[in-house]
Write a protein that binds this DNA or RNA. Structure first.
Lengths: 149, 149
DNA sequence: CAAAATAGTGGGTGGTCACCCATGATAGGC
DNA sequence: GCCTATCATGGGTGACCACCCACTATTTTG
């Protein structure tokens, strides 16, 4: 138990510490898998947003994901370079660029989704199906509280 | 609902995504509070380890918290500068440095623990007492699975 | 039509983080 | 006693991240 490697109980006794640690490990694992493809988590988030909501004006994409428009430009640029998304000037307002998922992007998104599901299953392995649903419901409640503050 | 700010459901549908996000927010809030005191999360972790397990040889402290010994040296140096810990050469093995919590350090630790508990209460505000215990039990199970892999 | 606001982009900054190596001091094995 | 391993430490690196500013092109406002 106290094998010189055990984390301090006064930390592990905090739900938020466990939340942090487990969340960080989960994120790290997924980031690791994405890195093998030369991708980062933001790439997945952008593709997911396009998959879920359809084409976006680039600025709206940044707003939705709460990221700096300048950073979004770089991410979209990388995705476009890989052929996962297409950029098109808006005819009505030529300042705007509409970002659309390509077929290749949709395929990539499906693969990344599968990776994410894989990591989730790994991380939640100790839980029964019923417990996973409980955890999900609780986390959703907490998350909802945080984003609507 | 879809107000251009909503996160992609294919992400929020992943428990690990919620885990990541909520964990990151919780960690960020606590880091913010600590930053006002010129401290970082590692400072708290070190103090907590000393509080829970008593004095440590510096190297063991690093091993316990899974941090690079070189980084631990810097953190301990900062804590010693603030008078929160004391460093003493081990008489038996003069290469080793034993780190001990001072009274001031113990006081600081109590304050940081209180901050951490405050953030936990903030983050878990949407949950009932019973739900918090459920969440804690589930997280502990997941965490246990991850660290004993 | 001039002035102000907006979109995308390039470039840079400061901070954290996890490393890794070199060095000097000390201990232990043989 | 000599060689090797271990400890603490200083210094540096590379990745990532969240920002922020300046500039150009374009649209909207008045």
């Amino acid at each position: 138990m106290d094998d010189l490697r055990a984390a301090p109980p006064s930390l592990t006794g905090l739900s938020t510490y466990l939340l942090s640690r487990t969340g960080k490990i989960a994120r790290g694992r997924l980031a690791g898998r994405f890195a093998e493809r030369g991708l980062r988590l933001w790439h997945h988030a952008v593709l997911a947003a396009l998959g879920d909501f359809g084409p976006h004006v680039q600025r709206d994409l940044a707003a939705r994901l709460a990221i700096d428009p300048s950073d979004m430009a770089k991410i979209v640029d990388e995705l476009a370079g890989a052929g996962s998304v297409e950029r098109a000037r808006d005819a009505a307002d030529r300042r705007r660029i509409t970002v659309t998922l390509t077929d290749a992007g949709r395929t990539l998104l499906a693969e990344l989704d599968a990776e994410a599901a894989g990591v989730r299953d790994e991380v939640l392995a100790p839980l029964t199906e019923n417990e996973r649903e409980q955890l999900d419901a609780l986390l959703r409640k907490v998350f909802q509280g945080l984003v609507t503050e």
